[in-house]
Design a protein around this nucleic acid. Sequence first.
DNA 1: TGCTATATCACACTAAGTATTATATCACTG
DNA 2: CAGTGATATAATACTTAGTGTGATATAGCA
Lengths: 105, 105
Amino acid sequence: MARQYRSDAMASIHETMEALQEVGAIDKQTMREFDDACLTPVEPLSPEAIRALREREHLSQPVFARYLNVSKNLVSDWERGVKRPGGPALRLLTVIEKKGIQAIA
Amino acid sequence: MARQYRSDAMASIHETMEALQEVGAIDKQTMREFDDACLTPVEPLSPEAIRALREREHLSQPVFARYLNVSKNLVSDWERGVKRPGGPALRLLTVIEKKGIQAIA
DNA sequence: TGCTATATCACACTAAGTATTATATCACTG
DNA sequence: CAGTGATATAATACTTAGTGTGATATAGCA
């Protein structure tokens, strides 16, 4: 329950804020700062953390790779520490970590 | 309601399948094929489509960039057709297109 | 009048991500 | 037991996505 709370709350708050902004009740500046505060920070993931994440979802490397829309070799490289997931890839992994694979399926 | 149906159904079906597999009712092979069938395909996005997507969410380039965990210049490049979003970035954009920005917030 | 945010643009750089190929292991099956 | 297929690791070479810096132009707001 605690895991779901943050994102659900954020979703409804965001909708409310958007409505207020469209109606002119709050200015763009406030909306901008709100959006900034909304962001879930991304922290680097260790190779072990990536493997643990994939195995938590009961997925093989090839299937996991297709979920992320990357090549299967890249997942292998991530898990062996040969390469590090970058900007958008790191965001995807963070989303899966927080909300599960169904969030992006 | 139609927009939510597919992913919600997929989520619960996936949970059921996982439970069946853990209990040994279905084999890994079947699970693999099921996972494959689950994937939402990613189609390339035109520069205009990316811009339309961002504006639909009422986000500036810098804020949109922070949601995706990319630099603000890259979003500008995407929207002007200078660069094309690749593997993981394309998956992120597709998720936002189908489920909204709150899906990854 | 300035201040701030937005957006376009140029440029050089790093490394993420791709494709191909090969190998070893394990599970399933005829 | 041999054979097939999926998984995972591995090496290599290549392409380009993505970064960072800095400059410019514009529009809205105090």
